[in-house]
Amino acid sequence: MLVHLANVLLSGVFHASILFLVAAGLQVVFGVQRIFNLACGSFYALGAYVGVSFVQASVQAGLPPGLFVLALVAGGLCVAVVGPVVERGLLRFVYDRDETFQLLLTFAVVLMLEDVIRMLWGTSPLSTGGLYLLYGQLKVLGVTVPVYNLIVIGASLLIALLIGYMLARTKFGRIIRAAADNREMSEALGVDMRRVYVRVFTLGTLLGTVGGALVIPATAAMTEMGIELIVEAFAVVVIGGLGSMRGAFVGALVVGVLRSIAISTYPELEMLLIYLIVIAVLVLKPRGLFGGAAA
């Protein structure tokens, strides 16, 4: 029983750590630019596919397979270049528009990226083969966990800490917080919002693509993975509170673990339960558990 519970919890936390990355990308963009970026899920999918390609390339190039994590991260970082392309090429034209139009523009990006993935990688699922268990498995609380899962959980925690440090201690972090609080004020104080937007959106994209790259050894890359994940990330940010990093962290844990529990007890309830919570939060506490603050 205990073993079962630990198993469920660990797989939930693994899923949560990926969800956190994508949700954090969603949050930072919403916090500063006030745009709910549906394309976050597509960046995640893109990161996954590029991750697979980078791993395959590195193995072919004769690099030791043990370094595949580095190849994944490199892939995730490289493909984040779509961020500034989308921001400069599309989003910057609609900053003064109604937010429903901004939402629709990100939906347009979702549509386009889905087919870009189909064009480049085809429609059949891709995976990194047996690399997932390359680092072996570990016995924790009587449960066997792939070491890779622990690496991902650790990496996600590290990224969370880095984001927290960046927001609290660096100049860029202060600018982000100021811009989230009051756009006009920051502009009046001489902050170049154009540059801030590019950098914030790139950061948001990067969190998504790295998340996608990291998840891929544990699963397979599929064309629908982006549109499926975005609704989970959506649940995370609503539960946590739009724009809040702490909210993304807690929300990801809630969604990841609850989903994992539901799958192991009443599989019918899987996402049903999550959406019920989302609705309850929106109705009872629309700003979410940690709403209001940008950090």
Partner: peptide, 11 residues
């Protein structure tokens, strides 16, 4: 690839 075309149109 209709989504690519339609996404561009929507944008």
């Amino acid at each position: 690839y209709w989504r690519l075309v339609f996404g561009a149109i929507l944008a």
